[in-house]
Amino acid sequence: MTESTGRKARKMISWRGDVRDARELRLAGLALAGPPLVWLATLLALPCAALALVALAARGPYGQIVWSFSAANFKRLLGYGLFGWSPDFLLILLRSLEVALVTTVVCVLLAYPLTFHIACRPRKARVWWLTLIIVPFWTNVVVRTYAWLLLLSPQLPPAKLAAWAGFVPPGGALYPSELAVYLGMVSTFLPFMALPLYASVERLDWDLLEAARDLYAGRWTVFRQAILPQTLPGLSVGLVMTFVPAMAMFVVSDILGGAKQMLVGNLIQLQFGQARDWPFGAMLSMALMIMTLASLALCRRRPKNL
């Protein structure tokens, strides 16, 4: 090998990211992580800081932001208004939490049987089943929610059946209602739960299930000791991917829920839209963000033995 080709080879290797010591590794790491860090800082951290700032500002008479800082918005969030204390906003936050939690739990309950069913199909059939999950996932959420509106309309069997059983007045629709919101929420978020969970279920070590059965375990113990620990990685991804967007969801509750089912997402949209009260909207957004992060932090505390 001549001197020049040797140098060329070395150069190529170092260009491809070969590192020789810890210092070079740190530098290479920084170089690679730099752009995403800048991206995150400018597009996530800065807006958050701006949001926090706006949350402490006030609304001017024409809907503009007035930069006089106070805790007024926070007090308003807690319910202290012009006409004394009312828990409306807190109730909306609480209801959002409840809707998101119930949606997540229902998605888990549906996703386990679903993913096991798919994982037990022959290879070719599995692709079709997964396609059935993914196709609606690609469809716009507004379009899908309007589809539910049609499905629950008075002319179709579900509403007729409900009217016959006396749940809705004759000729009535199944919306707006809590049920309609949950139907919309669960169908929207099921793929977010099912796909990560499927990734875990597909790689399941079935020997462990058989070992548990062989060692006298009942159904619950088989799930608790053989299935749950193995599917925990997929489940936790699914929990986050379902719960976080479900907390902020407003399209579904807006279309299927009516005025009675207002969630924090709708309330925030209202502040930034019709009400033109950006500071209070920012305060609500902060509250939503903190509640979501707190829930996730709670989730991260793993129960013992898992």
Binding site: D205, D207, L208, E210, A211, A212, R213, D214, L215, Y216, A217, G218, Q225, A226, P229, N305, L306
Partner: peptide
Amino acid sequence: AAKRQVNTVFQSYALFPHL
């Protein structure tokens, strides 16, 4: 299996990894 006085040593051992 749970009702039989028979126990198995599996080829993969199938030990519960979290226990």
